[in-house]
Design a protein around this nucleic acid. Structure first.
Lengths: 206, 206
DNA sequence: ACCTGAACACCGTTCAAGT
DNA sequence: ACCTGAACACCGTTCAAGT
């Protein structure tokens, strides 16, 4: 005689996400998730292969949310304004959910990582806007410079590694302006439509 | 009747560092360290308050090593060459000991973090060289831009987050050159001796 | 003075047994 | 079909007891 379900994958992922944000990755335990959804720990393994898969599901949700957030931040008028807006949106996204954000960049075991499909929109938005700003010539290294800076800055800020005083908001604004100047000198401005990639640049849909 | 010591703080830290590098932070357990130095886990607590303190001691060693490495990488001739050299030395330092490197930047509980004293030399070297390259005007936000980029880049590389192909060495070289151009336009070149800070800029010796 | 076994409160995960 | 208790192999840490 079948026992009725007491929980669901969706409830588990939602509870896991809340626990992650409140307690950090180390605090995201199967016992605590089980408590939160009202079952015993072994029952979780009916919906989820193991703790790593739960982390992967949460991280994939976060990656998709980031893509959507960046997309909404880029109305598509002035490419340079859009790029600035991406940087600001990225930072406030991370600050609003610092633990979830870390899942996107932390060195995790392969099967804990967000699905690469889930990160595609975020990557696409960046390449679209960056191509519009600087043309197609060196978009890949330029994107890496920009992402490395934004990720590094926000991570250091969240880790409280900026310990020399000074205005952190100002340092962020300083960085984005100087980087845009460095990557797209004024004479290299390009028409957005012309260089927007026809389709996703993301190579490996899982 | 006193029992002779079977181990030492130095042996514990050295063993801990080896285990950290081989197994990652999660693999650095008191049980494994105890095995490695030839005692039972409870004995470790004679030398070390807890696991966090062990992590802090290891991280402080790493921070001092980084400072020494950066210092040796900056002969002090051409400031721009020195700055490039700092970036390259930072990257190869991290790649040679990726797990230890993470202790310098990861968001850790306060009492797990490297002593701030331990990081002073690395910070000083950067400020000295950067002041020589660009003058004192905006050194703090410029240093933050540079460090955020270098840390972000190397961390993404170590986490294997660069998944779009392309040449990663080239992207690193691209980044450092563009950043130097952006932070220190040719007409802002300054005499090194004139702007080198007289003493450490580090504010809070612990 | 240092080391140890036993103990406690946790983990992730498996599995046989229940309904 | 889903849930559970019991179990196993781990953790960090404390403490009384040994030498």
């Amino acid at each position: 005689m079948p026992t009725p379900a007491h929980t669901s994958l969706e409830a588990i992922v939602r509870a896991g996400r809340a626990i992650l944000e409140a307690e950090g990755l180390a605090g995201l335990t199967m016992h605590r998730v089980a408590d939160a959804v009202g079952v015993r720990p072994p029952s979780l393994y009916k919906r989820v292969r193991n703790r790593g898969e739960l982390v992967r599901l949460i991280g994939s949700d976060v990656a998709r949310e980031l893509g959507q957030t960046l997309d909404e931040a880029t109305p598509g008028g002035d490419p340079r304004a859009d790029l600035r807006s991406i940087a600001l949106a990225f930072r406030s996204f991370a600050r609003a959910r610092p633990q979830a954000y870390r899942l996107l960049f932390d060195p995790l075991p392969d099967d804990w990582r967000p699905d690469s499909e889930a990160g595609r929109e975020a990557v696409d938005v960046l390449f679209r806007v960056l191509s519009a700003v600087m043309g197609p010539a060196e978009v890949l290294p330029a994107a890496r410079t920009l992402v490395a800076w934004a990720y590094g800055f926000v991570s250091m800020e969240l880790a409280d590694t900026f310990r020399l005083g000074g205005d952190v908001d100002e340092a962020f604004a300083f960085g984005i302006e100087r980087l845009m100047d460095a990557l797209a000198p004024a004479d290299a401005m390009h028409d957005q439509a012309r260089f927007a990639p026809a389709k996703s640049v993301f190579p490996d849909p899982r």
